[in-house]
Write a protein that binds this DNA or RNA. Structure first.
Length: 290
DNA sequence: CGTTGTTTATAGACTG
DNA sequence: CAGTCTATAAACAACG
């Protein structure tokens, strides 16, 4: 941990891991999802340290996105041309940094294999989430209609969300919400408040110095136990306009639809992807942030 | 061709 | 001390 509160981030490495930084960027976006380039931008804007050696840290960051289960890849829709996919956070990764340290997580977040984890209690919720997500996502033309020719990833969103949902859905699971909003569905507004709760400095940070303004935060503006919270409890449900992020312009073009699962488009198909089992290391291992 | 994404490997720091 | 986590490098494929 570098010296607290001494200088700006410009002359030293911020006390955040790439995972933290990436999560920060994603959380800060209106859509709760960002393309890679925007994650870069976010980090470079806020942390001058990362305006140099871009090759190095961006490679690391990409590695983290691919390698860590806490990040999920959401393909672009056909009407959102551009390079690369969107990246969002897995619902369960919210408390990864529960100990207040953004440098090292309590545990690496890993999704569970369905066959290993079929909770009786959460099954219904998970199934609902999966169904909702699956039904909600439209087809992504690059992958064809049903026959994913060039599509190598065996995991669909039901495999991601359905693994261990733990009520995140009710509270407004972020990625699901992201996906939902991504596709033009209204998302619980308190989600946005989670951002300021998780990453308080993101909103209040001095844009120039990159230093948090509030004195309530610890070194580098990192509040202790920042991520351990029931969002709705600590945060007023401040309605945050779900405006289209610059990177996701098409989202606004989509008519808002009801979130009722009964209105799911049956033809729609989830293609949120994660990595292959092989890259999950011990893919069967149960390792959650809790 | 540059960007994006995946994968493997290695080293160092941290944790229990 | 073993296991875990992070950072970094690098090779490679796919894509726009």
């Amino acid at each position: 941990m570098p010296r607290p509160g001494k200088s700006s981030y410009s002359d030293q490495k911020p006390p955040y891991s790439y995972i933290s930084l990436t999560a920060m960027a994603i959380q800060h976006s209106a859509e709760k999802m960002l393309p890679l380039s925007d994650i870069y931008k976010f980090i470079m804007e806020r942390f001058p340290y990362y305006r140099e050696h871009t090759q190095r840290w961006q490679n690391s960051l990409r590695h983290n996105l691919s390698f860590n289960d806490c990040f999920i890849k959401i393909p672009r829709r056909p009407d959102q041309p551009g390079k690369g996919s969107f990246w969002a956070l897995h619902p369960d990764c919210g408390d990864m940094f529960e100990n207040g340290s953004f440098l090292r997580r309590r545990k690496r977040f890993k999704v569970l294999r369905p066959e290993h984890h079929l909770p009786g209690g959460g099954a219904a919720v998970a199934a609902a989430a999966a169904a909702a997500a699956v039904g909600r996502l439209p087809q992504f033309s690059p992958y064809g209609s049903g026959q994913p020719s060039g599509f190598k990833h065996p995991f669909a969103i039901e495999n991601i969300i359905g693994r261990d949902y733990k009520g995140v859905l009710q509270a407004g699971g972020l990625p699901l919400a992201s996906v939902m909003h991504h596709l033009g569905y209204p998302v619980p507004s308190q989600l946005s408040s989670v951002v300021s709760s998780m990453w308080p400095h993101v909103g209040v940070m001095d844009p120039v110095a990159g230093v948090p303004v509030s004195p309530d935060y610890g070194p580098f503006g990192v509040p202790v136990k920042a991520l351990c919270h029931p969002p709705a409890q600590t945060m007023p449900a401040v309605p945050v306009p779900i405006k289209p992020a610059p990177a996701v312009p098409a989202a606004s073009a989509i008519p808002a639809l009801t979130v009722a699962t009964s209105q799911i488009c049956p033809a729609a198909k989830a293609e949120v992807v994660t990595r292959t089992p092989a890259s999950c290391g011990a893919s069967g291992s149960v390792m959650l942030a809790n």
